[in-house]
Every structure is written in structure tokens, then in C-alpha cells.
Design a protein around this nucleic acid. Structure first.
Lengths: 225, 225
DNA sequence: TATCTTTGCGTCAAATTAACACAAAGATTA
DNA sequence: TAATCTTTGTGTTAATTTGACGCAAAGATA
């Protein structure tokens, strides 16, 4: 058997659409490039795959070293292959998206290099490379996924209230959803559990605190909003 | 700017899950390997990416040269990255799935090398490499896709009857669907058009012939069976 | 104690779905 | 020619789900 790596191959990279949710805002983490190509433009964080790495390893490396994040929900999105997508030469990129609770990476955020920044998804600058298209695809996937898989918990604290979950869905799906119908559908799906505790401190009635049901039997559902 | 290809990169390949539907049978096209590794085992057709090619170009090349097929519905599935997935060395594979009407590639099928064969999806041999997993993922994707996108037409003739479409759905989804409810939902979705013609020759009542509505406004729907 | 806002729970009409009945069409046969 | 058999097209109905609300309880403040 002849080993492969004697042949010439395209470069292989991963790029990351890191979503964060905080204060009724869905944001994406962008990096300001300091070198050509696309110098001074905002781009998605990414890195080239090292010979021994899986995609997730490379993603974790980027999340850890560039952004100071650990243990992040990660999903492969799509591989981008346009021959001219990188002016430096042929490069394939396997896009992923990540869901992050910014509160949990607050320390990292504080120590983040000043060339890294959160942008509200409705106020994104034009991105370098083909990263606009990656972002669009990631957003579409997130919107679709959240209607059939309990993925929102990655963006919230371990304990959360019904109004918080409701606002998250409205924000991600960019619609209004009747509060009471939302409650009914979510509860019917059985993917959250009422802890019996209540969130104190608010001015009005204290809402119940829920947690994610990790023992959910069915691993998918279908909710139409 | 330093060009990339001076670095060492993993090999990059595409592999293809080619689905064909014929006589109430959903099948996959497999290739019998003539060389190590996995000599004499059945595997998915695939090829290494050439430096100038897009994934779809490589797929088309495989479909054309190995299988004699043109103009095939093709969709990127997932990229497989386990470091040991190929004993010859580090190789990434971007899996795709294709939908084919075997009747349209009949000539090709006749001239097909004898190491290529259709297998009913319920009677697959154990495949080489990580191709079992690729196949499973492709089947799952097809089953999901067919419930919200008119993808079945790629597997049927231009004109088809309601019972034919019904059988296709039952076969792919591996369930029974009430014939009359199926008809109503499909017609409500407006993605097929009654041509007014009828399929002659059958013993009993001649069913109407339908065609795909290419001017469909909404580009997706949701049908639960 | 009255008021204000938020949260939890319930109601009801409208829409959708699942299950099923029945008649029309076409070939075969008595 | 009429009876029979099977398949296909159409319609009906009850059950379920959904969307659009009403209302009271909880908690803070005036």
C-alpha cells in the first residue's frame, strides 16, 4: 500500500460559527484579521487541520486557545469547496457551529484579545472569505434544529424559567410565539422538568425554575411555532 | 502570502451513496474492491479529489466513469474524519448521496463492470472502511428529506401515478401510509400536477398520471406520515 | 389595602388528522 | 350481457391538535 501523503492535497481547515445568547440577544463571535488576505476584515474563527486531528479536535483547539472556551456544544455543518474561496490557494473548509452560554465563558471573554468580539446576528459586518454564506447556513440550521431537538439548553443556564426559554425561541426564530401555547407545547414534549424551585428577586410573580430532561426517551420531537 | 500546498495535508476523497428505486425496491449501488485494503469487500464508490475539482465534480466523475451515469441528483451529506478510517493513511472523506432512476441508467447498468451491483437496502453486506456508517446516515437523511422536500421525483419517471408515489414513500419510510390520506396531503402540498393522462395497460382502473410541479412557489413543505 | 405587572392554568372555536365508507373504472368471466 | 373482482378516485366523520384568548394567583409597590 502506498501512503497517501505523497500526493498533493488541498489544505483542510475548520471554521466556526459560535453562537451566544445573552440578554435576549443572539450573537456570533467574530475575529478581526490582522493579516492578508482580508486584513482588517471580520471573519469566523478557524484553523487548519493538523495531521493527527479530528475536526472536533481542531475546533476545540480554536475555542480553547483563541477564545478560552471549554466543553462547547459543537456540530458539523457543511464543507465548503469553491476552488477560489481562499486566495492563498486551494483550501477546503469544514464549517461547524457552536452554542455557548456567554456567562460561562465570561472570564475568557474578559481576557479575550481585543480583535475578538460578539456581534448581534442582525448587525453583522460583511465577512471575509465565504464566511457570510457559512453564517447564513449555520443560522438556518440552528433555526431548524431548535424545532425538533432540545438544543436551546446549551445557550441557557442549567436552571431557567419558562419566560426565558420562550424569549430564546422568539429570538432565534425571529417571530412572536404565544406565551401560553408555547408553554403547553414545550411541556407536552417532556424535555424540560419543573424543579419546584423559583427564581427569586424579580419584581413580580416569581417564575418556576426548569431544567433539561436528560433522560428523555424520544430523542427528537416536532414543534411548530 | 505563502501558498498552502507546501504543507502536508490529509488526503481528500468523496464517497457516494447512490440510491435507486425500482419495482418497489430501494437499492444502493456498491462496488467490489479488487485491491487492498478491504480486498473483495463491498464498498461505496468514491474517488480522491483532484486539485482543481469541487466535490460535485469528483462525484460526477465517479458517476460517469465508474457507473456511466449523467445528470444525477446529488447532495453533500457529511465529512468523515476518523484518523484511522483508512489504513493507508490519513484521509478525509466527504460523503454524498445520489438519487437515480435505474431505468434511465439502464444502458449504463448493462455495460456496468461486474464488480458493481445494486443491493436492496435491507440486504446489504457489511461494507469496508466506515461505509456502513455513511450509508446509515444517508438513509436517515433521505427519510427525513422526503417529508419536507419533493425529492422522490428523482427516483421516478417524469410521469408517475399516485399509487406509484405512494409506494415509493412507504418503501423509503418503511411504514404503511393510508392511501387516501396520503393522496390528500400530497395534493394539498401542490407539488404534483395531474396531467389528465392515464396510465394504460393495467388490469383494473387506469390511474391518473402526474408530473412534478417545477413552478412550486414554496420550496419546502411538511408532511407527517 | 389597592394597584400593577408577570406568571401559571384553563377554555373554546377552528383547523388538521386518522380512520373508514363508497362509488367509478377497467378487465375478466359466467 | 351481466356479474364479479380489483384498483383507483372521492367524500365523510370523529378525534386530535392548534391558535387565540380569558382569568386568577403571586409578588412588589404605592
Amino acid at each position: 500500500m502506498k501512503p497517501f501523503h505523497s500526493y498533493q492535497n488541498p489544505s483542510l481547515a475548520v471554521d466556526l460559527v459560535v453562537f451566544g445568547y445573552s440578554k435576549q440577544n443572539l450573537s456570533v463571535l467574530l475575529l478581526n484579521r490582522k493579516e492578508a488576505p482580508f486584513k482588517d476584515r471580520w471573519v469566523l474563527p478557524g484553523a487548519f487541520l493538523q495531521m493527527e486531528e479530528r475536526f472536533k479536535d481542531t475546533c476545540s483547539r480554536v475555542l480553547k486557545t483563541k477564545l478560552g472556551m471549554d466543553d462547547v456544544y459543537l456540530e458539523q455543518l457543511f464543507s465548503f469547496d469553491e476552488p477560489d474561496r481562499d486566495p492563498r490557494g486551494r483550501a477546503i473548509s469544514v464549517a461547524h457551529y457552536a452554542l455557548v452560554n456567554p456567562a460561562r465563558v465570561a472570564i475568557a471573554a474578559g481576557s479575550m484579545a481585543n480583535d475578538v468580539s460578539w456581534f448581534n446576528i442582525n448587525e453583522l459586518p460583511a465577512l471575509g472569505f465565504d464566511h457570510d454564506s457559512m453564517f447564513q447556513q449555520a443560522l438556518q440550521r440552528l433555526r431548524s434544529k431548535i424545532t425538533y431537538f432540545p438544543v436551546g439548553f446549551e445557550l441557557l443556564d442549567d436552571l431557567f424559567t419558562m419566560p426565558e426559554l420562550h424569549e430564546l425561541y422568539e429570538c432565534i426564530l425571529d417571530t412572536t410565539i404565544d406565551r401560553r401555547n408555547f408553554r403547553r407545547k414545550i411541556l407536552d414534549s417532556e424535555y424540560i422538568i419543573n424543579t419546584g424551585k423559583k427564581r427569586e428577586g424579580s419584581q413580580n410573580r416569581h417564575p418556576d425554575l426548569y431544567k433539561f430532561n436528560k433522560k428523555l426517551k424520544k430523542n427528537s420531537f416536532q414543534i411548530n411555532f
